[in-house]
């Protein structure tokens, strides 16, 4: 097993774990952590892409690395927005959950 394959499998495992958490955990904070787990997996895959140097047979391809950094910044900003929303929810004294109070959803279950 080459290091690339191991890293790839690891990335897949992270994405899988994150997906599981995102869909099954009811608490928004846990969903957010799970989203970050998926993000790490995706960035790992990007890293392998960089190592393979797919663009022009380079030994290391810098373009995906630039993308990883941008992606991390974006994911960080996303987490910050989500945390701000969750904090605000708990500040207004409501139980932090995604259950909607509007009685319009016929299925009743949590969508995520």
């Amino acid at each position: 097993m080459t290091p690339s394959v191991i890293a790839g499998l690891l990335g897949a495992a992270l994405v899988g774990l994150g997906l599981y958490g995102l869909i099954l955990h009811p608490h928004p904070l846990r969903k957010l952590l799970a989203f970050n787990l998926i993000g790490s997996g995706v960035f790992l895959v990007f890293g392998i892409v960089a190592r393979r140097g797919a663009a022009a047979g380079l030994r290391f391809d810098p373009v995906p690395q630039a993308m990883i950094i941008t992606g991390i910044v974006v994911a960080f900003a996303a987490s910050a927005v989500a945390v701000a929303l969750i904090l605000r929810l708990s500040a207004v004294g409501r139980r932090v959950t995604l259950d909607p109070e509007v009685p319009t959803r016929p299925d009743g279950g949590d969508a995520k």
Binding site: K31, A82, V92
Partner: peptide
Amino acid sequence: RPETLVAALRYLLFALFGSI
């Protein structure tokens, strides 16, 4: 309002899942 915060959070989580 709390219900708008919940709606926003739900929107954000769907959108983040989509973009990842």
